[in-house]
């Protein structure tokens, strides 16, 4: 199979495949970040996480349409507004869901899983009723089209580069927020010992709501970034949910570094395998690998010790 390519061709393929893997890595990481906050910090399984991403994607779509119609002059910059809109919409919905559903189920984690699945069904149908069953795509601003020619055989699409940069910025922001800010300190305190955190005067209920809303907001931004590299349909969220859960669990639920490392491992192995076999078999092989490793090491790659 490899005999047909010259050595430099192989090098180029390797680099391009690596970039494809990096873009997949960014997407995985963006998906998993919100989950890592909600699942890792709060222990809540949000099966509707994919639908929050799709909400962000649809918000981006709406914003792009609005800019196209009313503010064509500012169209090249619409994406930055769209991300803020996506974040706010998803965070607002998240806060409402936390109030209505999650806060009543903290003692029953398995039931949270089921209730949020019900929520995801409702949201899916809502998207289908509002935006139609067909997938919608976003018109990219002109500066994001095209690609960056490195050598005659290697080229990298600019929208992919943009998603990668965005991921880096958001990850850094989340890390700062969790490890340096007041809210982050409170969140970690509540995770480590809820009762004691409450005893020293932290409003655990408020922290929970803020954490959940933040996680959902980041999912919204992830969805917004998705529109750069693919189209959006009402049921697209379901395709990603298992992958993103595996990324978080594989990394070790409480660890941000672990989430980054596992997103990298999973995406790279998948895109490398994709070169050798079909796409579906690459996905199967990666999933099996992750499941087997999780069976051997249930706490994930980077586990932090937490007193329960």
């Amino acid at each position: 199979m490899l005999g047909d390519y010259s050595l430099s061709d192989l090098g180029s393929i390797f680099v391009m495949q690596g970039f494809a893997g990096l873009i997949l890595f960014s997407v995985f990481l963006l998906m998993a970040l919100g989950l890592a906050i909600i699942f890792g910090q709060m222990g809540v399984i949000n099966m509707a996480h994919g639908e929050f991403m799709i909400l962000g994607a649809y918000m981006t779509y709406l914003t792009s349409k609005l800019f196209e119609t009313y503010l064509p002059a500012l169209f090249p910059g619409y994406f930055f507004v769209a991300m803020i809109v996506a974040f706010l919409a998803a965070a607002l919905l998240g806060a409402m869901v936390e109030w209505a559903l999650i806060s009543r189920l903290y003692k029953r984690p398995l039931d949270t899983m089921l209730a949020t699945w019900g929520l995801s069904l409702i949201l899916q149908q809502l998207y289908r009723s509002i935006f139609g069953a067909r997938e919608v795509g976003v018109e990219l601003p002109p500066w994001m089209l095209g690609s960056w020619q490195i050598t005659s055989t290697i080229e990298v699409p600019i929208n992919g580069m943009f998603v990668m940069a965005l991921t880096a910025v958001i990850t850094a922001g989340v890390a700062l927020l969790i490890y340096k800010s007041r809210l982050g300190r409170q969140v970690r305190a509540v995770v480590q010992n809820r009762v004691m955190a409450g005893a020293v005067g932290i409003d655990t209920q408020k922290v929970d709501r803020a954490t959940f809303a933040l996680g959902c907001g980041i999912a919204g931004i992830a969805g917004s970034a998705f529109t750069m590299v693919g189209s959006t349909g009402p049921t697209a969220g379901q395709l990603y949910i298992v992958d993103s859960f595996l990324v978080v669990v594989f990394g070790g639920a409480q660890s941000l570094i672990g989430t980054i490392a596992s997103a990298f491992t999973i995406s790279q192995s998948r895109s490398t395998l994709e070169f050798f076999t079909s796409g579906s078999m690459a996905q199967v092989a990666t999933l099996i690998g992750v499941v087997v490793i999780l069976m051997l090491r249930p706490q994930g790659l980077f586990a932090t010790k937490v007193r329960r």
Binding site: R104, L105, A115, L121, Q124
Partner: peptide
Amino acid sequence: WLFGLGALFVVVVL
């Protein structure tokens, strides 16, 4: 149908 199923599930669990 999906609205109904989703709502049913949420209500039953809650």
